[in-house]
């Protein structure tokens, strides 16, 4: 039983029309990300983003136990937005999901829009909002960066899991109580989010210690005050 199991939404759980709508939503969302990512991507960020995508693929294979008989794995949104920013970060997670669906038969092709919307768009956006907020208010220490990664992970993962609940409400093919599904998803994903948070915090703190210049969030939210005098525009 130690083979890696399928981990994303399979075909058939959400009906065809709703799955199709979410493919359109995912395409539209990713198109916006591509446009904005072009502004961020340069000779330094591009290879870093490739590495972040590969790293997320690797860590997603490492399911950790959260309850007896229940495991969880990293989604990767928080890690990605801290290291490479929100737009490129969303594209990193989407790349992983596409490779998994097209090559590893994980996450149905019909369900690809659902999976991308939840994990690459919604979860990543929630994580980024928290990162942007927390890095502005917390003290400028490496510890704060770790704390930020932990909190943003928990919220990001729970929000992504609620994305599934919303999709189930719109097009679930079974008649289960929505409250029950929501409670199970949010409950388990709070625990998974803590696991993700510990992995994300360890990773970003390590990078921040070795190469702080490669951490997007530190560049974006901790600009040295000396160059931030008013009246100087870029």
């Amino acid at each position: 039983m130690d083979d890696v199991r399928a981990m994303h939404i399979a075909n058939g759980i959400i009906n065809g029309p709703v799955s199709a709508i979410f493919i359109l939503i995912a395409v539209a969302g990713l198109a916006v990300c591509v446009r904005r990512a072009k502004v961020d991507l340069d000779d330094r960020l591009a290879p870093m983003a490739g590495l972040v995508a590969a790293f997320i693929f690797a860590v997603q294979m490492l399911n950790f136990q959260v309850l007896p008989g229940v495991s969880g794995h990293l989604l990767g949104g928080t890690l990605a937005v801290i290291l490479v920013g929100p737009w490129v970060g969303a594209l990193c997670v989407a790349t992983v999901l596409l490779v998994q669906a097209l090559v590893f038969a994980d996450g149905g092709l019909t369900a690809i829009g659902l999976n991308i919307t939840n994990m690459a768009l919604i979860g990543t956006a929630a994580a980024y909002l928290l990162v942007a907020l927390l890095l502005r208010v917390l003290p400028r220490t490496v510890g704060s960066l770790g704390t930020t990664a932990l909190i943003a992970s928990v919220i990001g993962v729970v929000v992504a899991s609620l994305g599934f609940v919303a999709e189930y409400a719109l097009g679930g093919t079974t008649e289960l109580s929505l409250g029950g599904v929501a409670a199970t998803m949010a409950g388990v994903h709070t625990l998974i989010g803590i696991g993700e948070g510990l992995i994300a915090a360890t990773t970003v703190v390590t990078v921040a210690k070795v190469r702080p210049d490669l951490v997007y969030a530190l560049r974006a939210f901790r600009k040295q005050p000396t160059v931030a005098k008013t009246g100087v525009t870029a």
């Binding site: 130690d2 294979m61 008989g69 969880g72 625990l191």
Partner: peptide
């Protein structure tokens, strides 16, 4: 990856 948990993940559990 060899040492990863083989239990259903959160979504699969639900």
């Amino acid at each position: 990856s060899h040492f990863a948990s083989g239990s259903p993940d959160g979504l699969d559990h639900a």
